[in-house]
Design a protein around this nucleic acid. Structure first.
Lengths: 223, 223
DNA sequence: ATCCGGGTAGGTGATATCGCCTAGGTGCGG
DNA sequence: CCGCACCTAGGCGATATCACCTACCCGGAT
C-alpha cells in the first residue's frame, strides 16, 4: 500500500532456497522472480549444514526445502529449524509423492509439501499463502492427505497406521538386508520378538512378506 | 569465424531439454544461455512420449535427458532415439550416481552421464564436447567407470558379472515382491528352476539372500 | 570335437520365515 | 480403574528359502 503503486506489488517475502542441485535452484529463483518480483531470494544452500548455519542470519520468512541432500535429510533439518525459528514457514519441495513423507514433513513442522514438478506461479502462490499462515499442499497430495485425515477421525482400525519406534528399528535393519537372527542379535532381542514386530509391520504396511516390506521401506525412504 | 567476431562466440549447438521438472528445465536453460549464448534450447519436453514425438522435428544436436519420468525411462528413450537419430548426442542428467545406471546409459548409446548436481558451466562444456563426439562423464563417476573397465580388460573371474536375460526376468519379479512360487507361475517354470536362477543371481550380485538381492535390484534400478 | 555358460529340473536336508495362539510387563488416556 | 498400544517372548505347525548335489539340452567359442 504505502510503497509503490505498481499493480501486483506486495509486501516483500524473504525466501531461503535449499537444494543440492544448483540448476534447480537457478530455475526456482528465475521463475519466482519472473512471477512475483516481491519474492526475494535472500540465500541459497546446498546442504543441511549450510542451511542450519545460514538460516538464522538470513532471517527468511519462508524456506523452500529439499529432502534428499548429500549430508542429511530435509525433514530432520525442518524439525531443527522449527525449534529455533518457529515463525518461519518451511515448504518441502521433493520428488517423492509419498504420503508418509508428507506426514513426516508436516509432523516436523513444515507448512507445506510440494512436488518438484510444480510450476513457478503455483509455487509463488504457495509461498505467499504459507507466509500468511496457511498450510499448502500439492493438489496431487491434498486429496490423499484428506482421505487419511477422514479415516483417522473416522472409525475403528487404521490400515495405514504409523510404525512404532521398535518397529522402525526392525524395519531399518530389514532394509539393510539382515536376517531375523541378525536383527535379533543387533537389537538384543529374541528371534520371536523380531518375528512379532515383523508381523505387525506387515499389517501396518499392508504387505505379506519381508520382501514386500523391504520394497515398501526402501521406496518410502524409511531407510 | 565467419559470423560474429565476438570473443567466445562459436558454432550454434541445438539442445533439446528433457525433464519432468519445469523448474529444473528453467534453471538449465537460464544457466546455459548465461554461460554460452550459442547453446540454443530448441525445445523442452516433460515426458518420454513428448521427446519421442518432438525430437525428430526439433533436429537437436544434443539432448539432455532425465531418467525418471512419469511415463517411462530416459535410458529406454535414449535407446529408441539413437535408433532413429544416430547422429544426435544424448547426455543423461540424473540424480542417480550408480555405476549400473551409467553402464546402462552408455550401452543404450548415450554420449555421457552427468549428475543433476552439475553446475552450469560444467554442463555447457560437456554439451560442446559431446557435440564434437567426445564421451563426457561426471568426474565423480569417471573414476568408478575407469576402475570397472580396467577390471574387465584385466584378469580372471568377474566379481560383478552381468545378469543373463532369464535372471533379469526373475530379479524383476523378485523386486516386485513375488515369492518363488509366484515367479515360477508367472514365468511358467518350476520352483526349482527359479531357485537355481536365484542362486546364480546371488552369486553375481554377491549377496546372500533374496532380501539383499531385492535391495540391490531396487538400488541399481533393475526394476 | 569339445568345452562352457545358460536354461531347465530334480533329490535331500538344513534353516528361515510366517501364521496363529497365549501371555506378562509397561505406560498412557478416558 | 480399565482399556489399549507397545514391547517382550514362547509353543506349534506349515511353508518358503537356501545350499549342496546331479542331470540333460542347447548354442557358441576354442
Amino acid at each position: 500500500m504505502t510503497s509503490e503503486s505498481e499493480t501486483g506489488t506486495r509486501e516483500v517475502v524473504r525466501v531461503l532456497l535449499v537444494d543440492d542441485h544448483p540448476l534447480f535452484r537457478a530455475g526456482v529463483a528465475q521463475r519466482l522472480m519472473e512471477t512475483d518480483s516481491s519474492l526475494l531470494i535472500v540465500a541459497e544452500c546446498g546442504t543441511v549444514r549450510e542451511v542450519l548455519e545460514y538460516a538464522p542470519r538470513a532471517r527468511p520468512d519462508v524456506i523452500l526445502m529439499d529432502i534428499g541432500m548429500p549430508d542429511g535429510n530435509g525433514i530432520e533439518a525442518t524439525r531443527q529449524l522449527m525449534a529455533d525459528m518457529p515463525e518461519v514457514a518451511i515448504i518441502i519441495l521433493s520428488i517423492y509423492d509419498d504420503i508418509q513423507y508428507v506426514d513426516a514433513a508436516l509432523e516436523a513442522g513444515a507448512a507445506g509439501y510440494f512436488l518438484k514438478t510444480v510450476q513457478g506461479p503455483e509455487l509463488a502462490t504457495a509461498i505467499r499463502n504459507a507466509h500468511e499462515g496457511d498450510a499448502v499442499l500439492s493438489p496431487e497430495l491434498a486429496e490423499a492427505v484428506f482421505r487419511r485425515i477422514s479415516r483417522r477421525t473416522g472409525s475403528t482400525s487404521a490400515p495405514a497406521d504409523l510404525l512404532s519406534g521398535r518397529e522402525l528399528d526392525v524395519l531399518r535393519l530389514l532394509a539393510l538386508g539382515r536376517a531375523n537372527k541378525e536383527i535379533a542379535r543387533e537389537l538384543e532381542l529374541s528371534v520371536r520378538t523380531v518375528e512379532a514386530h515383523l508381523r505387525s509391520i506387515y499389517a501396518k504396511l499392508q504387505v505379506g512378506s519381508r520382501t514386500e516390506a523391504v520394497i515398501a521401506a526402501i521406496r518410502k525412504g524409511a531407510v
